[in-house]
């Protein structure tokens, strides 16, 4: 059935564009329906991220060497980078949330980079995934803000140093921007990753035409290079924004 369909499309014209097919969720075993517990390609690539993280951070640091091996160095660099970010942005009392932020960063970073392997599945391009991350951060940070500061957390929206007339207006804007945070937080990540992968697929579709194939392949190379940057930058942006939101919860006074 499927073969026949593809054959039909081939017959229609040389170009076959299915840039979004790469995001289809498929069961790994068999062809059945996708239930919430079904092991799918999502499971596979998230599991591979987990394995890569374990390989670098657990196996790499196995030696506990004072003079680190290369793998241990990578782990230590990432550790130091995120630790310093958390400490710089949230302050000393934010350091106890470091493992959570490290978990977020590592998941996004490794999912992003593994997604750059051809034929892989990019988990961070799925809005469901990034929305869970973004809204998870939002809900945790909001609850944490109220638990730690009580009603004083609402001071986040009330600019004490603004002119009295402007304060209510600013408060409204602040509240709106506060509730937009998780949306932009999650769509930024999913949008960036999805767009890059879809664009690569579109270029790959053009590569089937002999006339433009050199240009298309050069395009793929260029976009791929860009995506390597984007994968790292988006993980960094997501993490530093999480730190900024956490800082608001810890110290709501501006």
């Amino acid at each position: 059935m499927r073969a026949k369909h593809v054959a039909e499309e081939k017959a229609e014209g040389g170009l076959v564009f299915h840039p979004l097919d790469q995001f289809i969720v498929k069961p790994i075993f068999g062809d059945g329906p996708v239930h919430w517990y079904t092991p799918t390609n999502v499971t596979l690539w998230m599991g591979l991220s987990l394995l890569a993280i374990v390989a670098i951070f657990v196996l790499g640091s196995r030696g506990r060497a004072i003079i680190p091996t290369r793998l241990q160095s990578i782990g230590e660099l990432i550790y130091g980078f995120i630790y310093k970010m958390v400490e710089d942005v949230t302050g000393k009392d934010g350091v106890k949330y470091f493992p959570y932020i490290m978990t977020l960063f590592l998941f996004i970073l490794f999912a992003n980079y593994l997604a750059l392997i051809p034929t892989s599945y990019s988990a961070t391009s799925m809005i469901a995934v990034t929305a869970v991350l973004g809204f998870g951060v939002f809900i945790v940070v909001t609850i944490l803000g109220f638990v730690l500061n009580g009603p004083a957390f609402l001071g986040l929206f009330w600019m004490k140093d603004a002119p009295a007339i402007l304060r209510p207006i600013i408060a409204v804007i602040e509240v709106i921007s506060y509730f937009v945070r998780p949306v932009s937080h999650s769509i930024r990540l999913a949008g960036n990753i999805m767009a890059g992968h879809a664009v690569i697929k579109v270029f790959a579709g053009f590569a089937a035409l002999t006339v433009v194939s050199p240009v298309a392949i050069l395009g793929i190379t260029a976009i791929y290079g860009l995506e390597v940057l984007v994968a790292g930058i988006q993980a960094y942006v997501f993490t530093i924004l999480t730190c900024v939101y956490l800082k608001d919860a810890l110290h709501p006074a501006h």
Binding site: V42, A123, A128, V129
Partner: peptide, 17 residues
């Protein structure tokens, strides 16, 4: 499906880390 496996992965990463 995605949310379930995401949560599983995150918990696993968190515990390992």
């Amino acid at each position: 499906n995605q949310i379930f496996w995401l949560v599983v992965t995150l918990i696993a990463i968190f515990f390992v880390m």
